[in-house]
Design a protein around this nucleic acid. Structure first.
Length: 197
DNA sequence: ATCAGGATTGGCT
DNA sequence: GCCAATCCTGATT
């Protein structure tokens, strides 16, 4: 089932951990692509590494919007990353989706990524957006009521992401310079689909 | 008006 | 391990 807005209104770290094992689903006319979320990072209020740290701007506007919407941004001029917005409106907290285990629409992902190895298809924040066809026009859209959705674990009967059932590893976040010591990255223990160990 | 730099990736050494 | 690619945004002059 599609996660309701109330799910995203919980504490951001709680949402980050509960997101692991859920399905990120992109529905397009061309077809559906989806993958289990296996790696995330939390970005909090007052967190120097968060895009929201210096206040609301045109770019990070969605981060301050209602929980359960997407915050999509471009990085290094070429890659796109997707976040799940959390917390009450105005707080500027979000969870970055860093890696997926491909679950459906794998052929389309392979076409878009120009490669075939399933392990490398979505093992990074820029890779997964390319694989699922997530573009800037999804910025600010509702994840409960739009083309980009998040489904609860077990939405695909008898199918589960790889790894030690439900065990979560917590580490520092990847690629940041500010607040680099905060342990706000979470991934499914044993998954081969994370961006790095 | 100008400019530094970034929540990355892929290719080369 | 190192580095270029590539393009805004946001901060500064």
């Amino acid at each position: 089932m599609i996660l309701p807005p109330a799910f995203y209104e919980q504490d951001t770290v709680t949402v980050a951990k509960d997101l692991l094992g859920c399905l990120l689903v992109h529905r397009e006319e061309a077809g559906v692509t989806m993958g289990w979320i296996v790696e995330v990072e939390a970005y909090l209020q007052g967190d120097p590494a968060a895009h929201s740290y210096r206040g609301e701007t045109l770019r990070n506007r969605a981060m301050f919007g209602p929980a359960g919407h997407a915050y999509v941004y471009r990085i290094y001029g070429l890659h796109t990353c997707v976040n799940v917005v959390t917390g009450p409106e105005g707080t500027g907290e979000a969870v970055l989706v860093r890696a997926l285990e491909p679950a459906a629409g794998i052929e389309r992902m392979q076409e878009r990524r120009g490669m075939s190895d399933p392990v490398s298809l979505c093992s990074g924040p820029g890779k997964l957006t390319q694989a699922l066809g997530i573009t800037m026009d999804l910025d600010g859209t509702s994840l409960s009521d739009g083309p980009l959705q998040v489904w609860s674990p077990g939405s695909l009967p008898d199918r589960r992401p790889e790894g030690r059932d439900g065990e979560i590893v917590q580490t520092t976040r990847v690629g940041i310079t500010k607040a680099a010591d905060l342990p706000l990255r979470f991934y499914l223990k044993g998954s081969r689909y994370v961006s790095r160990r």
